[in-house]
Amino acid sequence: MKKINHKDINDQQLVDVRTQHEYQAGHLKNALNLNPGNFKKYATYYLDVNQPVIFIVGSEEESHLEELSESADALGFTQNNGYLLIEEVPKENLKTTETIPAEDFLNKTDDFILLDVRHPDEITRPAPEKNLVNIPFENLVNDYQSLDTSKQIFTLCGSGNRSTAAASFLESKGFNPKVIEGGMKAIQEIGK
C-alpha cells in the first residue's frame, strides 16, 4: 500500500482506523473513524466502493495495512489509494472530538438528544430514556437528517467505539456531537 503525504489529500474518502481515544485526541476533518473490525462490518454503509480510500493510521497500526487492504478488496473497493501516517500531519491540521464523562452526562438538565447507535437486538443494558433516539449505526448514514440540529447530540453505544464512529460521521455532516465516555458500560457502573 502506498504511503500518502497529507498535502496530497483532496477528495479521497478518509478512514481513520486508530482507536476511539486516539481518534478523539486528534483527527483530520471529515475522516470516518472505523477500527479494522468496524471497517469490515460498516464500510460499505458509509463509503462509496468506487471512490478512492485513504487509511489513516498511527505507527502502531502500520502492521494492519495488509489486512485492511485485503478487507477493502474483499468488500469491493476498487481504488485503494494508500495510507497516511497521522504522526506526519501537523498538529494544527487536526481536530478533536468532544467527549463527556458518563456521570456528567447523567447530571445534565438542559435539552439534548441522546443518540444510541446500538442495534435494538443487542441492547441488554437499556439507555437512559430522557431524550433517547435509537438509530443503529448501520442506519445512521440514511437517518441522520431526522436529528434536530438545534440540540446538542450525545452519542452512545456499548463501550464507545461505534459512538465515536457515529460522532465522526455526524461531524462530517456539520453536527457537533459529544461522545459519552465509556458508553453504556460506564453509565451502568455509575448506576450500581
Rank of each mutant, 00 (worst) to 15 (best):
V57I: 13
G58T: 12
E61Q: 15
H64R: 08
H64E: 12
S69V: 06
E70S: 14
A72P: 00
A72H: 02
D73T: 14
D73A: 13
A74D: 15
A74G: 10
G76A: 13
G76K: 09
G76F: 07
G76E: 09
F77E: 02
Q79F: 11
N80E: 10
N80K: 11
L84Y: 05
L85Q: 10
L85W: 04
L85V: 09
I86T: 03
E87Q: 14
E88V: 04
V89Q: 00
P90V: 02
E92M: 09
E92G: 00
N93H: 15
L94T: 05
K95T: 12
T96R: 09
T97A: 13
T99K: 07
I100V: 15
I100Q: 02
I100N: 01
I100S: 06
P101V: 11
A102E: 07
E103Q: 12
E103P: 02
E103W: 00
E103I: 09
D104Y: 08
F105W: 04
L106N: 10
N107K: 15
K108W: 04
K108D: 06
D110Q: 14
D111Q: 14
F112A: 05
I113E: 03
L114C: 02
D116H: 03
D116F: 04
D116V: 01
R118Y: 02
R118M: 05
D121Y: 11
I123P: 05
I123N: 10
I123M: 11
R125H: 12
P126E: 15
P126F: 04
P126R: 08
A127M: 04
K130H: 06
K130T: 10
N131V: 00
L132E: 09
V133R: 05
I135E: 07
I135A: 08
P136H: 08
F137A: 04
F137N: 03
N139L: 14
L140H: 02
L140A: 03
V141W: 03
V141D: 03
D143M: 09
Q145M: 11
T149A: 13
T149L: 05
I153T: 10
I153K: 00
